[in-house]
């Protein structure tokens, strides 16, 4: 466990490594967003940029949470507490999206005729 001095000493290299990964991740996000040659989808911002950007951000966030915040070896109660927050925040996002784009009314999710105006489109 990270609470004894020996364990703390051992994990210092991990912390440094994670810090470096975070720096690299940040540079990567910016490059992906700003260099046209690295575009995956269309030219300019599109849904792929959003997915890629958020994926990198989530990875970074996970590293911070698991290594810096010691979630890789925490007590059960902490997982329950933080997990409950995460579950409801996901519910918040999901239901907001559902309320905004109803699959029965809106063709955001299901668009057989291909005529719907996508919200992101100009």
């Amino acid at each position: 466990m990270a609470d004894t001095p020996e364990a703390v000493r051992k994990s210092i290299r991990t912390y440094l490594f994670v810090g470096a990964v975070l720096f690299v991740g940040t540079v990567l996000t910016v490059l992906v967003a700003t260099v046209p040659a690295l575009d995956i989808g269309h030219h300019g911002f599109d849904v792929w940029d959003a997915i890629l950007g958020l994926a990198i951000a989530s990875t970074k966030a996970a590293l911070v949470a698991f290594i810096f915040m010691h979630l890789n070896h925490e007590k059960k109660a902490v997982y329950w507490i933080f997990g409950s927050g995460l579950i409801f925040v996901i519910a918040l996002f999901a239901l907001f999206a559902l309320a905004k784009y109803d699959p029965i009314f809106d063709n955001f999710f299901y668009d057989p005729t291909g005529t719907a105006v996508k919200p992101m489109a100009l």
Binding site: F88, A91, L95, L98, A99, D102, P103, I104, F105, D106
Partner: peptide, 17 residues
């Protein structure tokens, strides 16, 4: 936590939600 929008039936939410 997941029942709140029953206060909002009249706001024109879609049928699925």
């Amino acid at each position: 936590f997941i029942v709140w929008a029953h206060h909002m039936y009249m706001t024109g939410m879609g049928p699925a939600v």
